[in-house]
Simulated assay, not measured.
Amino acid sequence: MTSGKGSLMSDINVTPLVDVMLVLLIIFMVTAPMMTHGVKVETPETTHEKLDVDPKGLMISIDASRRVFVNQYELRASEVREKLPTLLDVGETREVYLKADKSLPYGLVMDVMAQIRDAGIENIGMVTEPVSLAGKDEKGSGL
Rank of each mutant, 00 (worst) to 15 (best):
S7G: 12
S7M: 08
D11M: 02
I12H: 00
N13S: 03
P16S: 07
L17I: 01
L17M: 02
V18S: 00
V18R: 00
M21I: 04
L22Q: 05
V23Y: 08
L25Y: 11
I26E: 00
I27M: 08
F28Q: 11
A32P: 02
P33W: 03
G38L: 03
G38W: 00
V39Y: 00
V39E: 01
V39G: 01
K40A: 11
K40Q: 15
V41P: 02
P44R: 08
P44H: 06
T47N: 03
E49A: 09
E49M: 02
K50Y: 00
L51D: 13
D52K: 03
D54M: 00
P55V: 03
G57S: 04
L58H: 01
L58S: 02
S61H: 07
I62A: 02
R66M: 11
R67V: 07
V68I: 10
V68E: 10
Q72C: 07
Y73R: 07
E74H: 13
R76N: 11
R76F: 11
V80G: 05
V80I: 09
E82D: 12
L84S: 04
T86R: 15
L88A: 04
L88V: 04
D89K: 11
G91E: 08
G91D: 10
E92L: 05
E92A: 14
E95G: 09
E95S: 13
K99Q: 14
A100E: 11
Y106C: 03
Y106I: 06
Y106A: 14
G107R: 13
L108M: 14
D111L: 11
D111T: 15
D111Y: 11
M113V: 14
Q115C: 01
I116V: 15
R117Q: 10
D118V: 06
A119K: 10
G120T: 05
E122H: 13
N123L: 12
G125V: 07
M126Q: 13
M126W: 08
V127F: 09
V127A: 05
T128H: 12
T128S: 11
E129K: 12
P130E: 10
V131D: 09
V131E: 13
S132N: 07
S132T: 12
A134I: 13
A134M: 08
A134R: 15
E138T: 03
E138W: 01
E138Q: 05
E138R: 14
K139N: 15
K139H: 11
K139Y: 08
